[in-house]
Design a protein around this nucleic acid. Structure first.
Length: 864
RNA sequence: GCCUGGGUGGCGGAAUAGGUAGACGCAAGGGACUUAAAAUCCCUUGGGGCUUGUCCCCGUGCGAGUUCGAUUCUCGCCCUAGGCACCA
């Protein structure tokens, strides 16, 4: 231990020690309780950012803490390595995505090591490696066998910029989640995973995930979007065909006066054929297909439609209903057809008024009349049925049941449910992904590749094309194969690759046995480690990745490959790392270095205009408010960087960047360092005091209590809540208390013993958060083994006890006085002492005492 | 519109089963050390009032309520962040 705290000198040394001693390498051990700790693995973009630093620091504290508590901790790290940035960068640099990716991985691994994270690096995986995606392809074949995956021609979300299909989950407000450009509909043959088969199960278990933030489970529930209603079939006039609709308001079926079909609905063209509406319909359908998805999705978007030239019959009322195709009917939801009840649905109402369609009221609010001709908005509330034949007079809630039962009996319709969740389209027309192991044969159609061909490797020699178009379809060495079924000469490999979210849906299983080359994973290993006990990552994955992973775990479970059904027992979603933005009216967002802060009003160093200091926002390149963790590492070292992330805010909240905050953390570590140096000489020969508190007195007794109180607080903060900020502040208090012990006098043995205990305790409690720093002091204190191998400290109950405690006195609930009294004084003594207090007397004097409330060891409240 | 969080000093944030609001840190101010600065150490710091006291009044987004007592529980509002959204 040097005179000066120098992170640059000590950090590499301990990192080397951890590496060489293999402290973080783990194996299955049935005799030790396991703890599988996982943070969301990064995309190898090139260098780590503050979000990673925060995420992995939180995880590392938990991992080191659990290890000290005696758990067998699995804490792996790897790379979500397929994806488009690699392709784009490769095109730009005239390089190859694989090279770019592996170089980035090397750079980022080095950075993570510099942070001192406790990973078992032997288990590192990269999803772009054939050894990994081999088993993804294998699983695809298993799923194909069980009909969990299928191919279908359908309208898909197409991003022109990225030249690929997007899943519904990847479309945000009508735009591509990655590039932000408008997404259009395109008809393509795609591979789908039947996630909707699991909709109910995924939904049901949302309420059983006690260790998940409610926020996330509600988001998933909303995404699955289960609605209860009925399916009703409307016969088409002069036809055998019937139109099926889904509705949640079957009670209003008598009020249905027209029908709306989505423009993509197959019946639209069929029904309009050779009617005088044909051309008008065709024109409308074409126009809709070209529209931006975002525009069409706007609620405020003008409702419009075209009569298709045919009618259907309301099976309940017998009414003849014109059939329209309308822009507000969505092919993706329900059956793509809407029975329109203008009196009780606002959209239908708007549409009916626009095209002069009839409005019939069938539910009336209690005690009020309602007239279809004169009403100016739809009535969507509850009420009494009318104009509904035998159901008149019922409450509409009762009618929902009654009408559904009636329709069921008559074969008109039945109760059913509908989901918002769609099947997961996984085909991507990109190069840098796992090839889908299927073969197209002219004779046999689509045929699965034989298992013995796996892995179907991505050809490395491919030249990437400008614009991002996949080179695979033109690469004959890849596409040409023979049909495994008929053996014919001509067959082509599928050239689509899988969505990268497929890789991240099972990587946590692979970590259990990353080197297994005979199966996806070793059964024993996966059964020992899974499920993940604690998962940590950003909320931005609340739906996408977390829902897919839950789905995949169910698939693996149902294929008999794994025991558990839910992958993540506890989930922590950490907040974002934010910083204020600065913008110049002329030059837009500025880097902090482009701002001259020395003047009274900060100004732009380019044009001297005053800059506006904007809102605190998530660090992002476009806002130019990012702090590179490297600069922190350079200036302060890993421990200060970690400490800042932990101290500035509790993990689930957003963290605001503060230069002074970092400085403060560094100052604290220096303070502890100096304390240790100052006392090292007297405490080195003694052992930590472990006797009874009764043998101590005065300051020493107080410090002894403080030490044990700190153990209690820190342990509770970490164990129950992951509130590292309060854990750190508790240790700060302890350190402050130790500074209160006089060092100038010759040090007595008892003082040295308690000081040693205090110092060792502070170091142990801090060790998960600032590991290098702690190891350094710990070893100087004479310990030969790593601080990680020391058991987590336990507090003594008898040390916490106080002989004298402070009792607060309130009069009518207001604080008026306080006094110190023996801790075991009884209620009557407390009352008497409180009443005798002269400050209390001022407020009580002369007034009748109504009641006295005594709270043990805390307060006395006198009510007058 | 619907669903989730969150509103506490100049700032980040404490208050774990309704019981001393503002722990800890930052910033600010004062002092000590120093020729000086940095670093360090000590003190003050929610607002207001005066009779400077272990004083009084106000204070946790706003308005009610429950309670001896509410940052904490209930109801109604306002603001804010995030998610979903023409979902039939």
């Amino acid at each position: 231990m040097d005179e000066r705290y120098d992170p640059k000198a000590i950090e590499p040394r301990w990192q080397k020690y951890w590496d060489e001693s293999g402290l973080f390498k783990v194996a299955e051990d049935p005799d030790t309780p396991k703890y599988y700790l996982l943070e969301m693995f990064p995309y190898p973009s090139g260098k780590i950012h503050m979000g990673h630093v925060r995420n992995y620091t939180i995880g590392d504290v938990v991992g080191r803490y659990k290890r000290m508590r005696g758990f067998n901790v699995l804490h792996p790290m790897g790379w979500d390595a397929f994806g488009m940035p690699a392709e784009n960068a490769a095109i730009q640099n005239n390089s190859h995505p694989a090279r770019w990716t592996y170089e980035n991985i090397d750079a980022m691994r080095a950075q993570l090591k510099q942070m001192g994270f406790s990973y078992d690096w032997d288990r590192e995986i990269a999803t772009c490696h054939p050894r990994y995606y081999h088993w993804e392809q294998w699983l695809f074949l298993k799923m194909y066998e069980k009909e969990m995956v299928y191919r279908k021609e359908s309208f898909v979300n197409w991003c022109k910029t990225c030249q690929t299909v997007l899943a519904n989950e990847q479309v945000e407000q009508g735009a591509c989640w990655r590039c932000g450009k408008t997404v259009r509909q395109k008809k393509l043959a795609q591979w789908f995973f039947r996630i909707t088969d699991y909709a109910d199960d995924l939904l049901e278990y949302c309420d059983k995930l006690d260790g998940w933030p409610e926020k996330v489970t509600t988001m998933q529930k909303n995404w699955i979007g289960k609605s209860f209603g009925a399916e009703i079939r409307f016969p088409i006039e002069d036809s055998e065909t019937r139109i099926s609709v889904f509705t949640t308001r079957q009670d209003t079926v008598f009020g249905a006066t027209f029908m709306c079909l989505a423009p993509e609905h197959p019946l639209v063209t069929e029904l309009s054929q050779s009617t005088e509406q044909e051309s008008a319909v065709a024109e409308f359908v074409d126009r809709m297909a070209l529209l931006d998805r975002s525009d069409r999705a706007m609620e405020t978007y003008e409702k419009e439609g075209v009569f298709v030239g045919a009618y259907c019959i309301n099976p309940m009322s017998g009414r003849r209903m014109p059939i329209y195709t309308a822009n507000f009917a969505l092919m993706e939801y329900g059956t793509g057809a809407v029975m329109s009840v203008p009196a009780h649905d606002q959209r239908d109402f708007d549409f009916a008024r626009k095209y002069g369609l009839e409005v019939i009221v069938v539910v009336r609010p209690e005690g009020k009349p309602l007239d279809g001709a004169s009403m100016d908005e739809a009535y969507t509330g509850e009420g009494v049925m009318l104009n509904s034949g035998q159901f008149d007079g019922m409450s509409n809630e009762d009618a929902k049941e009654a009408i559904a039962a009636h329709m069921d009996k008559e074969g008109i319709g039945k109760k059913t449910v509908s989901y918002r969740l769609r099947d997961w389209g996984i085909s991507r027309q990109r190069y840098w992904g796992a090839p889908i192991p299927m073969i197209h044969c002219d004779r046999c159609g689509v045929v699965p590749a034989p298992e013995s061909d796996l892995p179907i490797e991505l050809p490395e020699e491919a030249d990437l094309l400008e614009g991002g178009k996949s080179p695979l379809p033109t690469l004959e060495s890849f596409t040409r194969t023979t049909c495994p079924k008929c053996g014919g000469a001509e067959a082509r490999r599928e050239t689509d690759t899988m969505d990268t979210f497929v890789e991240s849906s099972w990587y946590f299983d692979r970590y259990c046995s990353p080197d297994c080359d005979t199966a996806m994973f070793d059964r024993e290993a996966v059964d020992y480690w899974m499920p993940v006990d604690q998962y940590i990552g950003g909320v931005e994955h609340a739906i996408l990745h977390l829902l897919y992973s839950r789905y995949f775990t169910r698939v693996l479970h149902d294929l008999g490959l794994i025991d558990c059904k839910e992958p993540f027992t506890r989930l922590l979603t950490q907040g974002m790392v934010c910083k204020e933005t600065t913008a110049c009216p002329e030059h837009g967002f500025l880097f902090p270095t482009q701002v001259d802060w020395s003047e009274e009003t900060p100004n732009c160093s380019i044009c001297r205009n005053a800059v506006t200091v904007g809102r605190v926002e998530k660090m992002s390149k476009s806002k130019r408010n990012v702090i590179d963790p490297n600069t922190l590492l350079e200036a302060y070292g890993a421990d200060t960087t970690r400490l800042f992330c932990l101290f500035a805010a509790p993990p689930e909240r957003d963290l605001e960047w503060s230069e002074q905050g970092v400085e403060g953390g560094y100052r604290f570590l220096n303070r502890v360092w100096r304390l240790a140096l100052d006392w090292m000489e007297p405490i080195q020969p003694v052992t930590a005091y472990s006797g009874s508190p009764d043998a101590l007195d005065g300051n020493l007794r107080d410090l002894y209590r403080k030490i044990h109180e700190t153990i209690r607080r820190v342990t509770g903060d970490i164990e129950d809540r992951f509130h590292f900020n309060t854990a750190i502040s508790a240790v700060m208090e302890l350190v402050n208390a130790m500074y209160g012990i006089d060092r100038s006098k010759p040090v007595e043995a008892s003082t040295a013993g308690v000081m040693r205990l205090g110092l060792e305790t502070a170091v142990l409690l801090l060790s998960p958060m600032v590991p290098h720093f702690s190891e350094e002091i710990w070893s100087t204190l004479g310990h030969e083994k790593s601080v990680l191998l020391a058991p987590w400290p336990e507090y003594r109950k008898d040390a916490l006890q106080k002989e004298e405690i402070t009792i607060v006195v309130q009069v009518n609930g207001k604080l008026r006085s306080r006094f110190d009294i023996s801790a075991d004084a009884d209620d009557d003594t407390l009352k008497e002492t409180a009443l005798a207090d002269e400050r209390v007397q001022k407020f009580v004097a002369g007034k009748p005492i109504r009641k006295i409330i005594v709270v043990k060891k805390k307060l006395v409240n006198i009510v007058v």
